[in-house]
Design a protein around this nucleic acid. Structure first.
Lengths: 358, 358
DNA sequence: TTGAAAGCGATACCAG
DNA sequence: CTGGTATCGCTTTCAA
């Protein structure tokens, strides 16, 4: 059992020609190959544990059934990873395999990664980023059907199609959730503006106020960063030494780590969550949001769905494209389309009704 | 610029034969091809932006320069991901590419994943798990050089080589760190025993006590789980309503999320970290340990190093193996070897000297 | 109904 | 020094 069996081995064992084997195993046996032979071929294939060499197939068919994924920083983040997982599941169900090249945030490696993938004859390309952001699309991506996930083409004219979360709506619905609980003095702790995610979520927050006919108190919007300590210090600024009647009753955070920091600060100040202040996260980070004390209400980022949606769209284009030849790439697949995937409100224990009298 | 240029295109443009192109572009031109032709060939290649079709190469050379990685659950964890990142970086530097198949913790998919990879003619295989654990190695992995990262062969006799963290030593050094700070009443909050990581770290903790000539108080060792809430409740059990003189002065956690829970509990009880109690994490989780308030002292898991070490060992075997043929697989690469990679102590702000009088 | 032959793209050997 | 030819494993005409 050294080398894998080839179609020739099967043919020999069954006493027929390679062509017959090929026909039968690809379902085109009936009407071309004697039933008796078909039977023998199938038995032989099973006996030898035969499965075709994908490399040879790729060469022959001029399509590799490989989708290349270029990632910002797949590895260290539960974010990218989930997008890729969603994408990969869809790819697998179509008989494709994905190979991902991680640039580790070094954009100068973009082109090289794409080139490597192209040399491997990938049938399609997906670019995935950890955080939502505009992307300077590597020019050579245009050579095969491509799509962007969690990022969008930075060229003004319509570029590559992309799938991104509906951050504005997410921000709005988060605010609406606490408003429904009676809160009116609501702070928003966002990261920096390095990613459009923060501004968009803040825009949604403003929309909610507008929708409720309330003014936005600009002092309540703090762009502090994305980590636990930023949340902690942001909350301290909002709460420490401020008398109960004038502090915000709810704090919306742009991610779950910020929310951890906020809760930490509350505890340190002897404040209870959600009785004294409601806290909301964003992302629904795995193993974090659900396990916090108290469990975090949050806005789940539809990562897997985004990956799946992007891959579905991409494969549609790949499979439509004339075998191995590049389509003209000017109309195919709705070039430039931007798909917005909604976030999902997850209500847990860190948000509650506003305290009486506020 | 529709189809990629082939060697034939280059040959035509340069007015030579394919063979000449092949020789020159593979550095075997001198002494075989006229210098003048070489020049023309190189120019033609550059003009056409030629690079060889890896698929054709793979078929021809019977080696794909692809390493298959089967992962437990790459996606959602910063753990696996980092191992893969380390492995991938090494692979890339050797001109290999990795394709990872994620089984999402469904072991029944193991064999299928390996089979898919094998059909793609991978030159080697690596199995990566999120948590340290014994692995029932898919039998078909034996068909190509293989290695395990963060897991080990569950068969008693030496199976596949593996690279795992030195958890015992990690547990010991964590305990020694706080002992050096004067602590004697040290609690250990571990996850469950579903993974050998917890018992091993606890073993190390015991070693440290033995080394110091101190007895272990078994009530101080709690196996609670792996998440924030487990840490919170574990700490509450240890600290709530217990008078200062009889509570542990340091709490060692089996991961950083547990440590978050412990700090949360401390704050809730009005205790300061590290003044009242020192807290230590484990893993040095990205974006978490460093950003905690206070920043967590922790024992960094050498994830990237493990991935890199595993890939280095694997490639050594792959590249030693006679081109395309499987080596006999009984001696090659030190079968069954188990490499222990040490963890790295990271001292930050959550551990400090024991309070006076304790 | 079956088998022989022509590629897919690249390399290596061997006459010329 | 150079170019023809076999080969990798498979599919797909096309003749027999």
């Amino acid at each position: 059992m050294n080398r894998k069996a080839t179609a020739l081995d099967v043919a020999k064992l069954a006493g027929v020609s390679r062509s017959a084997v090929s026909l039968v195993l690809n379902g085109r046996g009936d009407g071309n190959v004697a039933l008796e032979s078909q039977q023998r071929i199938r038995e032989a294939a099973a006996a030898l544990n035969y499965s075709p060499n994908q490399i040879a197939l790729s060469l022959r068919n001029r399509q590799s059934r490989i989708i290349g994924i270029v990632s910002d920083q797949v590895v260290t983040s539960p974010f990218d990873g989930n997008i890729i997982a969603g994408a990969d599941a869809v790819a697998r169900s179509h008989g494709f395999v994905t190979v991902v090249m991680d640039t580790e945030l070094d954009t100068s490696r973009d082109e090289g990664a794409v080139e490597t993938l192209l040399d491997r004859q990938v049938d399609g390309l997906m670019y995935v980023t950890v955080g939502l952001r505009p992307l300077h699309v590597p020019p050579n991506m245009a050579r095969v059907p491509s799509i962007l996930a969690n990022c969008f083409d930075d060229r003004p004219e319509a570029g590559l199609p992309s799938v991104i979360p509906d951050e504005v709506r997410g921000g709005r619905e988060a605010a609406e959730h606490v408003m429904a609980l009676g809160h009116r003095d609501i702070a928003f702790l966002a990261g920096d503006s390095l990613t459009p995610a923060a501004p968009r979520r803040i825009a949604g927050y403003r929309d909610a106020f507008k929708g409720a006919g309330l003014p936005v108190n600009e002092d309540r919007v703090l762009q502090v960063g994305w980590d636990i300590d930023a949340g902690f210090h942001g909350a301290m600024k909002l709460l420490d030494g401020v008398e109960a009647s004038t502090r915000p009753t709810a704090i919306l955070c742009a991610n779950d780590r910020l929310a951890i920091g906020v809760v930490l600060a509350c505890y340190r100040l002897g404040l209870n969550v959600p009785q004294d202040v409601s806290v909301m996260g964003y992302d629904d980070e795995f193993r974090v949001a659900k396990a916090m004390v108290p469990a975090l209400s949050t806005m789940a980022l539809p990562l897997r769905e985004m990956g799946a949606a992007a891959m579905t769209a991409l494969l549609a284009e790949v499979e439509a494209a004339p075998n191995g030849k590049n389509e003209k790439n000017d109309g195919g697949g709705g070039t430039g389309a931007e798909v917005l995937v909604p976030c999902r409100l997850v209500v847990r224990d860190s948000t509650g009704p506003v305290a009486a009298g506020r």
